[in-house]
């Protein structure tokens, strides 16, 4: 029982990071129909800024602020430079554009920073353990869970309490009509990218805190997971992305925990099969939003 609870905590921590990432993808997809594969490079950017800020001996809180601000800025610039010119183009065009942006950023990281991992020395205080009864929770794991909860709560407040947030929810349902409210389309899209940059930055820091380094290819795997999570949840549904993230984390941890040893090498294959099973029952994902005809 204790072990199960412990694994549940583990699932919560991993699923939370996936949820943040999937949410970042979904926020943009819901509005302009773009799956931004360069989301991973936003994470990597947060990692590099953190590494350089710490290397420059900046105070830790300042380093965190800079590391989160950088991907927000980069996301907005990315939208302005790369995605706005192709807005409204076919899904394939959008996807290819995001692949290109992602590849260009990776090459820039490799050539201008380093192909090799750059260490991100986290303060020693972050490597402790918190014991709750029989449960052990690493400090980074606890921070990860707390940060996810905070981000989700903050985003929920933003989406439900502010005009900009409500405009984003409306835009996710029917972008053209939001413009009929006199709301600036570019503003709404830029806000969506800024939020996705924020989510990528926070998730990137949590990711880097675990691994202690950042390299040019760091973002690829997490963004793939986020993509799977977003598909499970129903692309374009924000709640679905969060649900998908937690479900994927839960599936991965529980399979790792309870699959027989001989099966463990096939854990990811089994996980993907479960995901496909979910999609067989709900082809549109867990919480698909109804597709709206656009003008």
């Amino acid at each position: 029982m204790d072990i199960f609870l412990q694994q549940l905590l583990n699932a919560l921590s991993l699923g939370g990071t996936y949820a943040l990432l999937a949410l970042g993808l979904a926020v943009v997809f819901s509005i302009i129909g773009l799956i931004n594969f360069a989301h991973g490079e936003l994470m990597t950017t947060a990692g590099y800024v953190m590494a350089f800020a710490l290397a420059a001996a900046l105070p830790f809180p300042l380093a965190i602020i800079l590391a989160v601000a950088a991907p927000v800025l980069l996301a907005v610039v990315m939208e302005r430079v790369a995605f706005r010119p192709v807005r409204g183009a076919s899904g394939t065009t959008l996807l290819l554009t995001s692949f290109a942006v992602s590849a260009i950023l990776r090459v820039l990281f490799q050539n201008f920073i380093s192909a090799r991992p750059v260490p991100v020395p986290m303060p020693a205080a972050l490597s402790g353990v918190i014991n709750i009864g029989p449960l052990h929770l690493g400090i980074i794991q606890s921070i990860s869970i707390a940060t996810t909860a905070l981000m989700l709560a903050g985003l929920t407040l933003f989406l439900n309490r502010t005009v900009a947030g409500r405009a984003m929810r409306a835009a996710a349902e029917d972008f053209a009509i939001v413009r009929l409210m006199g709301l600036r389309a570019n503003g709404v899209v830029a806000t969506a990218f800024a939020i996705s940059g924020l989510l990528a930055g926070v998730a990137g820091l949590l990711w880097v805190a675990q691994r202690g380094s950042v390299d040019p290819l760091m973002g690829f795997l997490p963004v793939l997971k986020a993509f799977i999570a977003a598909i499970i949840g129903g692309l374009g549904s924000l709640t679905g992305a969060v649900a998908g993230g937690f479900l994927l984390g839960f599936i991965e941890v529980m399979l790792q925990a309870w699959l027989p040893e001989a099966w463990l090498p096939y854990r990811d294959a089994v996980a993907i099969m479960l995901v496909i099973a979910v999609l067989l029952f709900r082809p549109q994902g867990l919480l698909a939003r109804k597709t709206v005809l656009k003008l």
Binding site: N10, L14, R211, E252, Q256
Partner: peptide, 9 residues
């Protein structure tokens, strides 16, 4: 994937 939590448990 850098998630070892299940294994570590």
């Amino acid at each position: 994937q850098q998630d070892f939590s299940a294994e570590v448990t």
